[in-house]
Amino acid sequence: MAARPIHPWPLRLMHWLNALALVIMIGSGWQIYDAHQLFRFTIPPSITIGEWLAGAIAWHFAAMWLFVLNGLAYLVWGTASGHFRRRFLPLSPRAVLRDLWLAATFRLPHRPGRYNAVQRLLYLGVLACGTLSIVTGLAFWKPVQLWWLSDLLGGFRETRFLHFAAMSGIVAFLVVHLVLVAAVPKVLAPMITGGRLHEESVP
């Protein structure tokens, strides 16, 4: 075996489908937020999707199928293929602190196909935020049929704040993610082509 892809094709496909779903979910979600704001700020309509509330809701509840089904496929694939185990584990607070310090002093190397402890933490964190966004979204959408879920999350209004918090976590991740891709542009091509990983660099 001379080489295998850094990112196998199912991962690349799901990555870009998720990117599309996230853009629509977040953009339309911001428009929905503006219809009844939780905080003292309005999200500029120019960066929202849907033009008005009905359009935004239609987009949100269309893209949710892509987001959820793609996310489920990713969970099944990641577990079955060993991707999660290989890429995200082990993870310890000590390793996170060590890699954070290395990153802060610009000594953290980029190793293709291998995530450092900070990356592992961030990826697991954004997966948790994605899951929270779906659970809180369901509870806010169906507070009668799924009353138990609504109660479990603290109540109707609380689920909306939690939904907003989950979105904020995802957006914060995306900012870091995009800044890092801009800083290390060579990581972009393998997410499209797959790239080639040589055996000696595999953990």
Partner: peptide
């Protein structure tokens, strides 16, 4: 303004 959007109910902004 919203009512004027009647015909464009589902048209979309950024996309």
């Amino acid at each position: 303004d919203r009512r004027r959007l009647l015909g464009r109910a589902l048209s979309f902004g950024a996309l």
